[in-house]
């Protein structure tokens, strides 16, 4: 069964389950296993993990940051090393590892969910949740305009560079924010005014409903999967809450 066959609502519940696990699991083994399951799910359904490649570098940087922060500030466990005011405690590394795993799981699951469905599917899902179509259709608009506007920002930077604006060092980049951001903002406002006018003049928001070229129909296996995932969450929650009562 391919990823495209799953209903976006199934994917949403899966995403919620992953976020729940990332916040509720505390041990390295638990978090590691959930992360592995999450990655495997992507691999089985899409036969590729290529799109997640861009995450690796960011995760390495974040991992390093978490590790350094924990080494400097963690005060749990026993003191294992001291050099001047720098004190390293025994819990620093385990805490850093669980922190990295949690962040990775949230990061991976978020990307997995938000790249798993087409904008049209997101729109239809939102409409199933009774969001009016005037709002639900905005999902597609952001996917359409993001690459266009990114290219436009590069053109703006080029344009200012030819006027003598330097963009080599970090300091240059800091100084170039305003001269590149403002044209971008003005241009964006012009664009949104034109786009909204074009949409309205083609009847956007004329009625409460509209005809879509496809529809969402939840299937038996989707219902089964959603029920199973909700059950897992309920059981896990109950087992955590019951001892407290």
């Amino acid at each position: 069964m391919g990823l495209s066959k799953l209903d976006p609502r199934t994917k949403l519940v899966w995403y919620a389950l992953m976020i729940y696990f990332s916040l509720s699991c505390q041990t390295t083994v638990q978090l590691g296993s959930v992360l592995l399951v999450c990655i495997m799910a992507s691999f089985i359904l899409t036969r590729s993990l290529k799109q997640y490649k861009s995450m690796i570098m960011i995760l390495v940087l974040l991992g390093l940051q978490i590790l350094i922060v924990q080494l400097i500030f963690c005060r749990e466990g026993v003191l294992i090393y001291q050099w001047g005011i720098l004190k390293i405690y025994s819990e620093a590394i385990p805490l850093a590892i669980t922190g990295i795993l949690k962040a990775s799981l949230i990061f991976f699951a978020s990307m997995q969910f938000f790249t798993s469905a087409s904008p049209q599917e997101f729109t239809l899902m939102l409409m199933k949740f009774k969001v009016p179509y005037r709002y639900a259709m905005l999902a597609g608009l952001s996917v359409r305009f993001f690459p266009l506007m990114k290219a436009e920002y590069i053109s703006i930077m080029d344009s200012q560079r030819t006027r003598g604006l330097k963009m080599e060092s970090v300091w240059d980049n800091l100084k170039s924010i305003i001269p590149t951001f403002l044209p971008f903002l003005y241009r964006a406002v012009r664009r949104s005014t034109e786009t909204a006018l074009a949409m309205e003049l083609r009847g956007y928001g004329r009625s409460r409903t509209r005809t879509f070229s496809s529809a969402l129909a939840i299937k038996q296996y989707d219902i089964a999967l959603i029920t199973a995932m909700l059950l897992v969450m309920i059981i896990s929650l109950t087992s955590k809450v019951l001892p407290l009562i």
């Binding site: 074009a198 928001g205 009625s207």
Partner: peptide, 23 residues
Amino acid sequence: NQIISLDVYEEVAFGLGNLEIPL
């Protein structure tokens, strides 16, 4: 600035959909 859909079909169908014309 006037194209709001990702594919050509959806773009041409956009206004028609808003008028609730059958698929």
